[in-house]
Design a protein around this nucleic acid. Structure first.
Lengths: 222, 222
DNA sequence: TTTTTATTGAATATATAGTTAAAAGGGAAT
DNA sequence: ATTCCCTTTTAACTATATATTCAATAAAAA
């Protein structure tokens, strides 16, 4: 994760750089607006910390300019605490705005929050267990990289069990949670379990879906 | 754009509601944690403003709970100004944090900034997949360089799917997102899908829009 | 060994998707 | 306001995938 700090006050850059590096970010610095633009054009940057007070450019205009050319989140830093300045900052396309002096931990928390928000959209919700990958968004299951074709009910049952490894579910519970109604004939579950096993287990040696004799089924934890 | 305010102080809710409505938001209110969760389960909400001081629940835990179940941005409100509280808020999944008393215009600017950031990520201007090019700005689709004439709904549906390849959308989700209202008869999606396929797919061998039996449709990832 | 519970395979029933055509809706030009 | 044209929705029908049931068999506990 590459962060570009745009600020002409070297001691601030130095301090921030240190803190961010502690948190696993790669930090780069630009000391003027022109330098910033040039840097962005030639490097991959994921996040920008932009101080409004720069020697050559108005920070707000620079923010707007960056916004037009690049789709990179920007956190503005400013000595001005006025509400109007903040609102202006957002108008010009900032993703967040902090006033100096600031708490570095809060800064980092805010950077994380913004990045997390973006990533969440792309983040597939995955359950991984040995050779088995369950992808909730795709509603697909992969066994050793190969897609396994599960039906809706099969997927739902597997997902229920797998998202609570070790927890034993009675057939009634499974029926309730997957079918969202009371069970009429609970043997149906057995058949679904069998079909899932046919698709993901090595015959005769189930290692994902286990039977708890007399109780129900559970997903293997170990 | 539907905003849910979670706060038990009615005068704050009233004031906020007014300001937000002035800015074109539809505002709903929940006065406790339980109410909030119930509301979220039964309604479509795009943004949450969460006050940390609630009668029945710890605001932080509520935030975490919401975060686990729903992918909706959360702005935290608190009377506490301490850096530690802020950082904690972000740890618990908040997207932003403001201390009371706050400037309403700043609040709105921050909401906008968050939503803008999300929307921008959603909007990849150009999607290319094999022989298919989808251009959002022109709202045109090209197949092997030839322009394909899609209707408005057809384009919107295709674009929704294509901008999230692999992700399976139920008919309800598609209807919600494209029509921006609740679905009455969801089979209309089928017809649109068929018409899109007629225009972009080789007969009998769809390779762009795939059916997830029992769930919905998705755009092919591979 | 007996009893209880789980697994399995096949038949039957149900649910869901695909297709078609016709009706309804909406916007632009007259 | 009316007509025309194109889009969208609805409804009916067909095709197909999936779910359930049932009875026989296997496996585990007592």
């Amino acid at each position: 994760m590459n962060v570009l700090i745009v600020d002409d006050e070297k001691y601030i850059v130095k301090g921030l750089k240190h803190s961010l590096e502690q948190n696993g970010y790669n930090v780069f610095a630009a000391y003027s607006g022109a330098e910033a633009i040039e840097y962005l054009e030639n490097n991959i940057i994921h996040f920008i910390i932009l101080d409004l007070m720069l020697p050559d450019t108005d920070g707000m205009m620079l923010c707007k300019k960056i916004r037009q050319k690049f789709d990179i989140p920007i956190l503005m830093l400013s000595a001005k605490d006025g509400d109007y300045d903040k609102i202006l900052g957002f108008e010009f396309g900032a993703d967040d705005y902090m006033t100096k002096p600031f708490n570095t931990l809060e800064l980092i928390a805010r950077i994380k929050a913004i990045i997390r928000r973006i990533d969440r959209k792309f983040d597939d919700k995955l359950i991984v267990k040995d050779d088995l990958v369950i992808n909730l968004n795709e509603r697909k299951v992969y066994l050793r990289g190969e897609e396994v074709n599960l039906t809706v009910k099969e997927f739902d049952v597997l997902y229920l069990l797998a998202s609570n490894p070790g927890r034993v579910f009675t057939r009634e519970e499974i029926y309730n949670m997957v079918w969202k109604e009371d069970a009429y004939d609970v043997r149906t579950i057995d058949v679904h379990i069998k079909n899932i096993r046919d698709k993901i287990e090595d015959k005769k040696h189930p290692k994902y879906i286990m039977t708890k004799w007399g109780v129900g089924y559970y997903f293997n934890k170990n």
